[in-house]
Design a protein around this nucleic acid. Sequence first.
DNA 1: CACTTCTAAGATACTAACATATCAGTCGCC
DNA 2: GGCGACTGATATGTTAGTATCTTAGAAGTG
Lengths: 248, 248
Amino acid sequence: MLSFFDMSELKDGVTRQVYLTLRRDILNWRLLPGRRLSEKDIAGRMNISKTPVREAFIKLQGEGLLEIRPQRGTYVSLMDMEQIEEVRFTRYCVESTVLSLFISSPPDEKTLTAMEALLETQEQAIAGRDVDGFVDSDDAFHRELFLACGKARAWSFIDHFSAQYKRLRYLSLQNYLDFGNVLDEHRAILSACRRRDSDNALRWLSRHLNKILGESEHLREKFSVYIKKYGEIQDSGAAHTPIPTHGA
Amino acid sequence: MLSFFDMSELKDGVTRQVYLTLRRDILNWRLLPGRRLSEKDIAGRMNISKTPVREAFIKLQGEGLLEIRPQRGTYVSLMDMEQIEEVRFTRYCVESTVLSLFISSPPDEKTLTAMEALLETQEQAIAGRDVDGFVDSDDAFHRELFLACGKARAWSFIDHFSAQYKRLRYLSLQNYLDFGNVLDEHRAILSACRRRDSDNALRWLSRHLNKILGESEHLREKFSVYIKKYGEIQDSGAAHTPIPTHGA
DNA sequence: CACTTCTAAGATACTAACATATCAGTCGCC
DNA sequence: GGCGACTGATATGTTAGTATCTTAGAAGTG
């Protein structure tokens, strides 16, 4: 319940601290889509001036997490389901190729061991109902795959514009508590890699990345106020309505 | 020879103008890799204050075109060949899938016509030795493909982190004047699309995107001062040496 | 001469104040 | 009552100046 203006630590760069704090709380759903943010307000709460806040806003806008309307206001982005789908598509295009690469090259025992270790980390996160820890080890699992193929930067490209995707994943995990399924999918992918069974590895990866969209149909109704609508008037509606903050 | 502080127009957003001006001149090679930029200096030349310059710097850093060293200085990024290679890899993963999609779905005559029109635009650019115009229509050609498949955002993701790739392409075109080859490749891809010949379309796409790396071997020697070195001391060397500006 | 310390210039990081645009609500006119 | 102009509050956009950090080079020391 520590709200988004914690400021317990600010060693390097105030701008960076603001950025990290806001980013975490948006992905956490402590700051809900559509919520209005104000440079002045946040600067005041954090006892800093507006400029670092403003710069953090700009960075977050670049990741699609904030929408800055010039001279009007800044809002936490609504969930753009079309964008999330295209992130998934892009990611699948790249990651399936990386997975094939990994399997077709000589199996890298060190990487396989590291990935197994991450699965154990995930198990622990499940036991502790630690959504954040689970999400971190999920990312680390996939990242390992890219690193093993010398595609670290390709991962960081994907990671960079996956912010909205991650926000949906967080919601999905919180609501369906399907941690175990994700873990099973990881196990299946890894096991197929060990067997050098490319077909099955790709099948499981596809299922793994697609699942979030399958679930999104269920989420769509329940969380429709947080989802961006097309075809309606773009400048009003849900984005402007005050939304209960349930956390501050 | 109009240098990078032109300021002929500044209708909306000073920050945006600074951003666009700097971005153009970096991709143009009017601002060379390794060159030092100063907030104060640019602000002074443009008769504006430092903040908009600073914000433009941050955006350009996000695209990998600038390197901001806190409290030290801001430099035009050196060419990071490994990053460019991974951009190419990522792009090929996505674009080959999009191309397959385009061919396997019913052929979209409107799109094919539009792409043919773009080829004519390219021909004109070649006739006029207009590198910028050529590059623009090159991008437009590929973008059309993504739009036709409903993957506009996927294109914008790729486009966003392709800045360094584009800079290398500009150099390659200026030095090898192989406009015609690029045009031929586009024609081959389009013609394969018309014949719904997926294999050949993909082969030509692969050749098209790979070419830049083949050429980069030749460029590596001639332009080595502009290329990022790994394994050396990261905090000194070429990046700091004053480099002839040949334009301002 | 080799090495350390000091210093001043100049870079980004940040602050505080001002400029400009937007919008909801109100006033006044019909 | 209905409708358009005005206005105050407040948002971001921009400016100018201050603070802090880094570094090159001078000065001092063995």
